[in-house]
Design a protein around this nucleic acid. Structure first.
Lengths: 215, 215
DNA sequence: TAGATTGTTAATCGATTAACAATC
DNA sequence: TAGATTGTTAATCGATTAACAATC
């Protein structure tokens, strides 16, 4: 079953397999991939099964074939576009990070309220005014939104994005977004994460927490 | 039991309770806090029980009292210090975000390899050279590290931090850190998160994923 | 008192882990 | 063949959910 954890692992496998391909590695065993991804061999086997790929008991999995199969699951055939709202420090960091990285899923538009930023070109994309959000998002067929605005603006931005047809939100503002059941909201709260790390730094980490890559 | 999920929820409760206190709200019911935090009432009740606080069947929980109790669990009495390594776009964003926010857990030092940045003051803190890392981290008693360096450097930076006594790592580099069992590593992989959101934007999100605030 | 909420236990659910026959 | 790995089912584990007596 392709639940959120499985999808996250597939994304990690893809990056690892791409590296292996770069090193001219042609096949990989479940336990090798598991060690690299911080998963278990059984998880890798089940994940591979879930994407409908098959390995060989003697050779394991073909790197190229598995890569293609994972891409077939993760990627939209016609490509997918994201919008980033809030070109502050974090917004710029994310724009830079994704610049020219994955042609199949790219940040196609950036928005900000600051008149200083609007109409300037940032990391290869013009920064639009929030007022243009619905028009631009609709005309580019964007269905993913990245929210890097202050907490007080996040729900309004989310509403505007959903109004324009966005069905997936990656939210870095420390608020709980209210979204309808057909919209996926992924919340990343950096201060919560830091407090968690600080707590376990003091109290000792369970073996489990330290040996896993994915939550 | 105070596992990672519970700690994350406590951190969210604390922010919400602080807001409520600012609005002069004195008591709160489990279902109210649950709705704000995106948890269930039963989770809130169990979490409160786990931090050793008690409510009243008629008045619910006292905001001030519960806040104090949560702080008693999350905060180190003598305060706690973090180091940030890698003052790129993301590093600067995080420095700005935490500047003067929580005196009990603050970023006390920043490090970078770039001679341009070293010795300059960034967001109130001098940026040190990586060469000084062990000395500075030890002398300031830092036990939390935030890693915002490129993937290729992350393990080396993690090793240096652990060597200097750090026991908790918040890692934004897309690599799996190898850490001993007594070190807590929390990994945030922004491209994995974006691919996850993009996938569910196309395939429809399960009710579960959309109604929960914490993973 | 009546009624909603708390504290806490039992039932459910889902994911992880273990196990093993089938396979190359 | 011998042996390690795959595909897949059963057992385990842990967390969430449901339930309800105790409480104010």
């Amino acid at each position: 079953m392709l639940n959120a954890k499985t999808i996250a692992r597939l994304s990690v496998y893809r990056r690892l397999l791409t590296e292996l391909r770069g090193e001219r590695v042609e096949t990989v065993y479940s336990h090798q991939l598991a060690a690299l991804a911080g998963a278990t061999a059984a998880q890798v086997r089940r994940d591979v099964m879930n994407v409908g790929y098959q390995g060989s008991p003697t050779r394991g999995y073909a790197v190229e074939g598995l890569l293609e199969r994972i891409a077939g699951v993760l990627d939209a055939p016609e490509g997918q576009r994201a919008a980033l709202v809030g070109v502050g420090n974090l917004g710029r960091a994310i724009l830079t990070y994704f610049a020219g990285r994955r042609p199949n899923l790219r940040i196609a538009a950036a928005f900000d309220v600051d008149p200083e930023k609007v109409s300037r070109v940032l990391h290869g994309h013009r920064c639009h005014s929030i007022a243009e959000l619905e028009d631009v998002v609709r005309s580019l067929g964007i269905d993913v939104g990245i929210i890097t605005v202050p907490a007080g603006e996040a729900q309004r931005v989310a509403d505007a994005l959903m109004q324009a047809g966005v069905r997936g939100l990656l939210n870095f503002a420390p608020v709980r977004l209210r979204v309808p059941p057909d919209v996926h909201a992924e919340n990343v709260d950096i201060s919560v994460l830091l407090e968690k790390v600080a707590f376990f730094a003091r109290h000792g980490s369970s073996q489990k927490e330290t040996t896993r890559w994915l939550p």
